[in-house]
């Protein structure tokens, strides 16, 4: 494309830049500018502004494009910085996420093979988030723990952000496995793991205000399995822990444990005097 020999004369450009140019002149300048490299170069550059502008771009360019999970969270209304923290967490324990998928696979297979096999699925699901939380936070687990322990988000805020990320991941993976369960499993039973999972998670965090987190996770995860099998053995009804009556109990427990967690949250700080 040619622009002919016409170029914006200096006086015209000046008036365009300071806003005093008449409308016909303005439109000519703009129409010409986009097609003429020579006249674009003639637009004076403010060196200081240009340097600052570039610094800001360099900062963004160095930053990686946010991953899909982060963009989805952000799109769902989660503030950008929190989305960042949440999305980074399951990646810290990728081995856990893989193990969850494998364990769920086995549980689904068991549900198809054995008559009461779906009980294995219901028993397993609440254990998964507690294991994930234990693997996502702590001095022994997290190589950067000491650095993060000296930031204002140390202790309860960081642990709760990571626990949320782990819980959501575990719940999502488990929910994805639900449709794979045998059709004979009633819809109400297929979701009977949800409240128990929230109970073990809130229980694990509440207990972590007193004992080290890995211990709390083992206690809640193991305790849950022991209670379910124990109740089944004693009463002879292995579905009892998943009946509506038990679900009401779990709901109350979640509320209570969350309250305990809130009241004692400062104890989650590694530097809280004992």
């Amino acid at each position: 494309m040619t622009t002919g020999d016409w170029h914006i004369p200096p006086g015209l450009l000046e008036r365009y830049l300071d806003g005093s140019l008449d409308p016909v002149g303005v439109m000519s300048v703009e129409a010409h500018l986009v097609r003429c490299a020579r006249c674009r170069t003639a637009v004076p550059a403010d060196g200081g502004w240009l340097a600052t502008s570039w610094e800001r771009i360099a900062a963004e360019v160095a930053a990686p494009a946010p991953p899909l999970t982060e963009r989805l969270l952000h799109g769902a209304g989660v503030p950008g910085h929190l989305a960042r923290l949440l999305a980074a967490t399951p990646a810290l324990s990728r081995a856990w996420a893989a193990a969850v998928a494998v364990a769920l696979g086995f549980a689904v297979a068991a549900a198809h093979l054995a008559g009461h096999g779906f009980l294995a699925f219901l028993t397993l699901a609440p254990v998964l988030p507690t294991a994930g939380i234990a693997l996502a936070y702590g001095r022994r687990i997290d190589p950067a723990h000491e650095t993060y322990a000296a930031t204002p988000m140390a202790g309860a805020p960081l642990l709760l952000v990571r626990s949320t990320a782990v819980l959501l991941t575990a719940l999502a993976l488990t929910a994805l496995a639900v449709p794979l369960l045998p059709a004979a499993t009633m819809p109400s039973v297929a979701w009977a793991w949800l409240l128990p999972a929230l109970t073990t998670t809130s229980g694990c965090l509440a207990l972590a205000t007193r004992v080290p987190l890995p211990l709390a996770a083992v206690a809640l995860g193991g305790g849950w399995v022991a209670v379910v099998t124990g109740v089944g053995a004693v009463t002879g009804d292995r579905t009892l822990p998943f009946r509506p009556g038990a679900q009401v109990l779990y709901g109350c427990a979640v509320a209570l444990l969350t309250l305990v967690l809130y009241v004692r949250r400062h104890r989650l700080d590694p530097a809280e005097p004992r």
Partner: peptide, 10 residues
């Protein structure tokens, strides 16, 4: 950036 930012800004 250095080539196009000034006229874009204007």
């Amino acid at each position: 950036h250095d080539r196009h930012a000034p006229w874009l800004r204007a």
